[in-house]
Write a protein that binds this DNA or RNA. Sequence first.
DNA 1: CGAAAATCGTGGGTGGGCCCAACGGTATGC
DNA 2: GCATACCGTTGGGCCCACCCACGATTTTCG
Lengths: 154, 154
Amino acid sequence: MVDKLPAPARIRALPSWLLGRAAAHGRGLVREALAGDGMPMLHHLVLIAVREYGPVAQAELARAVGIDPKDMVAILNSLQADGLVTRTPDPHDRRKNAIAATPAGERRLARQEPLVDAAMDDLLAPLSATERATFTALLTRVVAAADPDTPTVS
Amino acid sequence: MVDKLPAPARIRALPSWLLGRAAAHGRGLVREALAGDGMPMLHHLVLIAVREYGPVAQAELARAVGIDPKDMVAILNSLQADGLVTRTPDPHDRRKNAIAATPAGERRLARQEPLVDAAMDDLLAPLSATERATFTALLTRVVAAADPDTPTVS
DNA sequence: CGAAAATCGTGGGTGGGCCCAACGGTATGC
DNA sequence: GCATACCGTTGGGCCCACCCACGATTTTCG
């Protein structure tokens, strides 16, 4: 069987292409890891955000993680149906719902985080510990420049 | 005006998240740069691939750059209409078209490549020359592990 | 040598992510 | 008290990336 042509060398050398490939791979690994626990990636993301910021309004949540408010409704419906979050009216502002994680939600995340961490290990497997630190530090600076309003982690 | 909450710290520390942000930024920069010359990003990608491999079959092209054959038809229609590629029946295999770049196509790429290079400079602006080399080398290794059948550039 | 399988180019279709707008209800600011 | 803004929800829509099917052609296999 004849081999498949690779993408052109010019393209394969572009950092934006490399970042795209790496990002797609990373996303795939995370999606796969979470599928093992039966949860879509965005649901996980939202649950993490609820745990960190809860109780929190839906609109606030949607802005924090960059999800369309309409799509956030569906995700919260699903998380609520599974007993992982609660949705209660905000006592101080009746326009808002106060979204909070339940103990079941926190347990679910406790189970999932090692899966995601393992996916990250897999993603950076070709790099030594020192190289990973270097890579992540440089990547963080690139991202910080792109998104100056978001604090970085260090 | 109250500040917007950032994505959760746990998420912002994940290499897959960072890669996703950096990749989106890179894509945005390239798209913007090429829009300056009035060409969508995938059209540019395909034209580069045609220049490198032409004359080449559509299906081969689609596999090389990871574009759906159906979408490749539309892209080639547009490039052909603009006089940037030719589409002729393969004399040895009537199933196939032989796609080749025209001199106008090559000139168009010659104009666009500095734009894309400038976008890459912009993307990696926070890094020194040494850091860029380190970052790209590490990124290349991560991508090589994800896609072992594709040769890397070095 | 003929039938089956595979490939090619093209068209139809779908789902997810994102955009915009509208609505009724509520809160804020002047 | 009124205008403006925000909230949550819903609806409509677009675009992109992907899936599948079809007729024509080539390749493979018994």
